[in-house]
Design a protein around this nucleic acid. Sequence first.
DNA 1: AATGAATGAGGCTTCATTCAT
DNA 2: CATGAATGAAGCCTCATTCAT
Lengths: 205, 205, 205, 205
Amino acid sequence: MFSKFLSLDEEKQMRILNAAIKVYVERGYDNASTNAIVKEAGISKGLLFHYFQNKKTLYLFLFDYCLDMVMKEFYEKVNLEERDFFARLRQISLIKMELLNKFPDIIRFFEKAILEEANDIKGDFKEKIFSVKSSTAIFDDIDTSKFRDDIDIQKAIKSILWTFEGFSNEVLTKAKALNLKKPDYEEVFSEGEQYIEMFKRSFYK
Amino acid sequence: MFSKFLSLDEEKQMRILNAAIKVYVERGYDNASTNAIVKEAGISKGLLFHYFQNKKTLYLFLFDYCLDMVMKEFYEKVNLEERDFFARLRQISLIKMELLNKFPDIIRFFEKAILEEANDIKGDFKEKIFSVKSSTAIFDDIDTSKFRDDIDIQKAIKSILWTFEGFSNEVLTKAKALNLKKPDYEEVFSEGEQYIEMFKRSFYK
Amino acid sequence: MFSKFLSLDEEKQMRILNAAIKVYVERGYDNASTNAIVKEAGISKGLLFHYFQNKKTLYLFLFDYCLDMVMKEFYEKVNLEERDFFARLRQISLIKMELLNKFPDIIRFFEKAILEEANDIKGDFKEKIFSVKSSTAIFDDIDTSKFRDDIDIQKAIKSILWTFEGFSNEVLTKAKALNLKKPDYEEVFSEGEQYIEMFKRSFYK
Amino acid sequence: MFSKFLSLDEEKQMRILNAAIKVYVERGYDNASTNAIVKEAGISKGLLFHYFQNKKTLYLFLFDYCLDMVMKEFYEKVNLEERDFFARLRQISLIKMELLNKFPDIIRFFEKAILEEANDIKGDFKEKIFSVKSSTAIFDDIDTSKFRDDIDIQKAIKSILWTFEGFSNEVLTKAKALNLKKPDYEEVFSEGEQYIEMFKRSFYK
DNA sequence: AATGAATGAGGCTTCATTCAT
DNA sequence: CATGAATGAAGCCTCATTCAT
């Protein structure tokens, strides 16, 4: 289906994909006009539709493409031997930070895709996201014996994960408000560590 | 400014507002075409612009209108005497559930508005949301003496609030996935109670 | 046809007519929205159409109304006894200045009407203007014996009139460029006098 | 900026420009609907906006385009060696007649543009006209020694130019009234000559 | 493969005019 | 006589998609 596109030299592939990502991140699906994409990519309108049936197909492909890229990184780096929940959390948080550093546009692409509202593509994005979430059990095989016995472990884990989600948003929002390109990762790390300590003191034996 | 609209008989006002809300919730700002709104409301295109200068003004009005409606409910029901954090949390969660029951569309309108990405209105929505958030300190004046001394109270509170946010999203997503119009509130309440118990056991003295 | 309008108390008549003139002068026929007119006049939309079949009828009436007003002034003041061409020219120029002073809006209304381009009304205005021009022979019965014999009197008169037209536009344009509400009439008069002297020296015996 | 348009084959360019001119001349800026233009040009709505950002840009381009066309003709033919005012005037009048013959629509386009009242474009047209007027001093370097000493030369020149302006309008209006496509240029020339003779006799030594 | 001209539906908005009250 | 809510056509402009070259 995308054989035409994939047999392109890599530089041109990247130019097109990055253009599509950039425009999408800046404007969302509806306002990501094909005009803007081809202009940014430096190709002709016709060519875009030569490679991708239509705008929707382009972004569906882009989603999968970005996902692959990120997943590969992820699985290379996460150490599944480590069974302590907080050690794992620390690891994953670090990897997330690195990803944000390494592929900032791609990550922003996902952030937007998660919230996409355009009827045309909303459903397809949601489906993909759902199937990713349910297939990646990065917190499986945790050593539960360390948790206090009077604590519902599933709920505790959820709380901690939601907390880190909220904390991450807080950090991003603050950085944006201060017009920083990236948060100060030292500081973020140290504050994250404080949350971890708090949860350890409270939920572990 | 909206005097024309406000002097309309209430039935028609509601028809128009509900149409605008419905279309917005289904499609987002950009795709909430005025065509769709007037069709849903059963009025002519011209009439919409007789009442509202333009699409943006309509949705800005709608935001304030919905906010008033919700705020009124809220302030009638929250008991500011109660200083125990979890008691207050329980109260507020209950009120949220009731609101969701009473004004499901309005609440969904806000959920979307918070995440709105359409350049045209994003900023204005964010501003309004910000000024609401900073003016309503529903967790002020909490009795902090009950928290463990080795716990950073601000971080603990944030964790709990983020947890309840995450929990609430989980509930909503599950309900949607099961094609339920509303979650089973009994169940939600009981599960929420379990989270509260867990936090009390962990963060209180 | 306009009996309804004419039986209105004069104050209201004037309010409506002045509103129509003002809006027309500021925006031209096409952009003179009935909304703007009724707002300026402080009456309802329906009422305007109660008095005037439609927008076109209103402005056709207005043209005649303004013309009457101006003509009355004109014929009261021009002295047809005076047979010297330049004396008559001086007279007429003075009357024009006075009119401009007394009915600035009405005169501006005519200035615009003469140039009106809106298809809807262009033809009717042009016709009215034509029939006025051809019926008012304010330079009839001139004493031609004073002109040099080697001069074509008709051409000389035309030259002088076109010169005064050009001069008048020049004055108005200058005033506008300097942001003056009215030209400095002293100065205009004295410069006009110089043109008259020049022509006298050149065209008279 | 207009590269897309300019790289079109000339026939189509002309079809579009002539359509825009025709519609403009007939109806003025406000009423020159893009619908009418594309219909007249036999192209789709979208295509017009593919070439020109918007209606205003189209007409600004058209102005410059027409001006170039006319200016080229003008400068090819005017002889700046000739220092006698009337000889120069005769030259220029002849060139004007030829232009009117060669580009009747373009000339009518300017006639209208000069008087344009549409707020959207009035200012820009005025500016362009102003900069043309001030840059083209077609009556510079005149031999003033031939004028009578008791005559204000500036005023004399203005009179003559205004007279020729008036005369030109008279000719055009008459032709239109008689439903002629063009005036009878023989006759016009001979009548113009009579004006020149009259002024020579009166203003020259 | 590659271009970009060409299309036409659909989006927001304005406005003269009508009509129920 | 007076109001202003209501209509719908028409205006400008955008955009995904097609197609001849």
